[in-house]
Computed example of a mutant assay.
Amino acid sequence: MVKNKNNGEILDVVLVGFNCIQNQFIRREIEKKNKFRFTRKLPQYFCDDGVPTINQRTITLVSYNVLSNATSELIDFFSQETSTLIVYDVPETGVDIELCRYRGLKGILYQEAPIDHLFRCLDAVSNNDMWLPRKLMVKMLNEFRPYAINYQELNTTLTKREQQTLERIIQGQSNLEIAEALFVAESTVKTHVYKLYKKLNVRCRKEVINKVSNQFFEHSN
């Protein structure tokens, strides 16, 4: 990421997809703005060995169709906590709630959204905000409630520190980051994590996140 002449950030925007007419249009419109640096990558690029982790300040645009037909390698890549993901061309009917599995998801654009929504979405995401359609937010709230109740029941078995540790594990924080956030020693965090594993009957962070997220998706189906 570099600075422009007006001391504003020039944001790196990577579009994942093929060189179709729609993507050419998106590229042309984005390049009209002097605040974005645009590149395009084929989906296969992210499945190759040695592909670097996406910089958190890089905004990745991926079409809904690409994700719907994505390989497991591509899904894993975009599930990284460091990614900043905007999914466009999403159908208004039958929106797939499992898009929320992508931890870096920051924006969703419907198929019929005007190009102005793309720039407003990019601006929101570049300011560490999110851009989610109202219909999707309503659906998420309705489907999230049973999970919230279940999560609350889970928390009743945990101490306050274990609850705080669990929340930060779900956010992807390391033991050191959790220790700094809670103002405790890293060894203390390791003790909380060990007790969490025992209570949740899991062996690692990935299993913790899967267990909590699976409770949500079991309720949402």
Rank of each mutant, 00 (worst) to 15 (best):
V87C: 03
E143H: 12
R205S: 07
T53Q: 12
Q171A: 06
I178K: 02
E9H: 04
Q56D: 12
C204Y: 05
T157H: 14
D123T: 11
V51L: 08
A181S: 07
L85P: 05
K135N: 15
G104A: 05
Q173T: 01
R168G: 10
R134K: 13
A148S: 12
F77R: 05
V193G: 04
I209N: 06
K139E: 13
R145F: 07
Q56F: 08
Q24H: 08
V184I: 11
I21L: 07
N69T: 12
K198F: 10
I170H: 10
N19E: 14
P52T: 01
Q80L: 05
R145W: 11
K35R: 14
I108Q: 01
K139D: 13
W131C: 08
K160Y: 14
K160S: 12
K206L: 04
C47R: 15
E180H: 13
V189K: 03
K41F: 15
L109G: 00
M1C: 01
D129A: 12
S63Q: 04
F183R: 13
R37G: 13
E177F: 02
E177Q: 15
V90F: 11
R203D: 06
R120L: 07
I170R: 14
K135D: 14
V138S: 13
I97R: 07
F217I: 14
C204P: 03
V208M: 10
E98F: 04
T58I: 04
Y147H: 14
S126H: 05
F119I: 01
K195P: 05
T39L: 01
Y151S: 09
A124G: 05
N4M: 00
I54D: 00
T165I: 01
T156C: 11
V62I: 14
G50N: 10
K198A: 13
L200T: 03
K190G: 10
I178G: 04
E143C: 09
E92H: 12
L136I: 12
A181T: 12
N210F: 12
S68G: 12
N128R: 09
E31P: 09
E92N: 05
R37Q: 15
A113S: 14
L154A: 00
I108E: 06
K35T: 15
N23L: 03
Y194V: 12
N19H: 15
